[in-house]
Design a protein around this nucleic acid. Structure first.
Lengths: 207, 207, 207, 207
DNA sequence: GATGAATGAGAGTTCATTCAT
DNA sequence: TATGAATGAACTCTCATTCAT
């Protein structure tokens, strides 16, 4: 029972995309060659142009792929129903875990910022609205109104804080491991890290 | 009175290094061409190899240049004499400000981590011990002993927290500006940011 | 009826190889540039790397090409059925003639020895066993046993003698022509030379 | 007690020449870089041009140096006073030994022939008359007249034979060692070789 | 006599991309 | 859909040589 032509084409395309994503993440856009991608995929070079147009569009497809995964957890978190402390803990834990298992995302994110976000623009990922931000904003406002939280708390900056606290463990793994003599690749260290973050934030927001 | 031969050579070398540093930061290692460097410097291409050996060693020299600047503020901070709260505020403010005015450093740091720290290894920057860490460790220990601080505070993780809280404003400027609709290039936003961080940390560490 | 794609590719590869072989023989490895090869072949430079990998591998392919031709006459000679004198005359005449019409071989052989045989190693030509040597060894042993030959004759050294006697006419054509005032390019001189060799050897081996 | 300026200059020149000679012999003209020479000599590159004009003239000076050594033994041999057999043995042994201890000569000779003798022409070494040839010619003529030698012996071809028989052991050391499984670098093998040659020639010339 | 800086041409090699089938 | 051949521009790097001191 042969595979249909369409299916085979789809498999070819997916294989190219997944390998390209890994290589772009590992080496960055410039250092990744189309040859490296097709050699590893065992697929003819011409297919890159057939399915994706050119190298840059393939890169943009990679960006869309990994960003899509992030969207999933954002959606999930935005449906969270408990109070602020639990929400913060959930955001931190989910996001931290996401970064931990999606090294591709971390690296492409780094690269994009080095690249002044041009790839993301080209990939049409600029319009992503942020459901978590809304959720967080509401929760904070409620907390401030109830006098439970410092009135100078700001949802956007707090979200930046959360992201920064989590991302640094992965974005700067190599340089930090060296300068602090601490193995940031070890799961134990990462566990301590995420707990450290949760406590810092939960304590740090109170009035 | 003409410039001596040695001085002219030194100027040539410095010019190459400063322009290379900027371009490496802007574009990353692979996307920066030796031609681009020498064209901008108006210097013969051969001189890159005369003074630095090859493109990679020139890149390593760039790393050493920007890391040297960081070393200066670290040394300064390590001589700080006040209490922990003041120390933390000083670290945050100094580091935040350093990142703000040293965009080159931020970008090369990002790139190095994308590149698994290989450039830093090659540049002989691995052995940098961290004077701030010692300082912070002592202060935390004292605070815990006096019952003023949470006993589960850890100097290394706290330092990572501080770095993450600051760095994110610059490392992810483009992606965050887009997804939060907040201009992270504006000085006003950055001022709010650093204050938000200081408060979060100062509140967050207490027992 | 158009040429197929594969055939065209094969022609391109063969053209590159034959021109490269000539130029490598004429100028040596270092003095032969890839540009010179592709210009003469009217073929895009990139094809050298497509078909051969790099300049060195192209050189090795050239070595294999000319060595292959030598293998042909060696095989032929190894099937020789007459006595030793006739065998020696045949070896000398065939080898001499081979060198005469394969200037490429002579020059590449010279170059290889200048280069300490590294190219041949890289080309995988080290394992060439020598069918003539076996043949010669047998014939000599028989002659010695029958008391017709000097008992101190050695097949390996004799073969070296034969090769040396022939090769010198081509390997040192220029320097000998000058220092002896004798035109070693002239067919007449070469005819005298090969006869001189045959007689010297046939007389020189007897008991 | 300082060295005089002239002496220092002479030492500089000699050092450049001796190192250049070795490198040209090892690598050939094209593959030897002026940088390699001056680095090894620890002498400023400009001095090559000061003392020798350019790279090519330095190469020619190397040729003159090693050819001069050959001239010495040729002169010596030309004064030989015994009979033909002894003369032939002397030529073979002296020449073989000369090649054995003057690897530079062998290699530069090879290279020159690859290069169609152009370097030798430029070096003004074309006019070297050959005192041995005269000597040999006389001895042969006498032998033929006395009926002791084959009347078809020719001095020039015989000299070529001798040279070929000797040179092959050194010129093709690498390729022969491989194809014959015989270590041509071993002194024992070379001893056997020279004896094999002497016997072959002494037997081979008789009427 | 000696030095380090500087040069421009050109080396080998690799790139993303297109063509022809 | 898929393929191998082909392209030209650009890459990093090296060369022999000269300049200024």
């Amino acid at each position: 029972m042969e595979e249909t032509k369409e299916k085979k084409g789809k498999r070819t395309k997916e294989k190219l995309l997944s390998i390209a994503t890994r290589l772009f993440a590992e080496r960055g856009f410039s250092a990744t060659t189309v040859d490296a991608i097709v050699n590893e995929a065992q697929i003819n070079k011409r297919m890159v142009y057939h399915y994706f147009g050119n190298k840059e569009k393939l890169y943009q497809a990679s960006l869309r792929l990994v960003y899509g995964r992030l969207g999933d957890i954002e959606l999930e978190l935005s449906e969270h129903e408990d109070g602020l402390e639990a929400l913060l803990a959930a955001i931190i834990k989910e996001y931290f875990h996401f970064l931990q298992v999606n090294a591709d995302f971390v690296k492409l994110l780094l690269w994009e910022n080095l690249n002044q976000g041009r790839g993301i623009e080209g990939a049409g990922l600029t319009q992503v609205k942020n459901p978590i931000l809304t959720k967080l904003n509401d929760a904070i406002q409620r907390g401030i109104d109830e006098g439970k939280l410092r009135p100078d708390l700001d949802a956007k900056h707090l979200l930046i804080n959360l992201i920064g606290l989590c991302l640094i463990y992965f974005s700067n793994r190599y340089t930090l491991s060296q300068s602090l003599s601490l193995d940031l690749a070890s799961p134990r260290t990462l566990d301590q890290g995420v707990n450290h973050i949760v406590k810092l934030v939960q304590e740090g927001i109170h009035a």
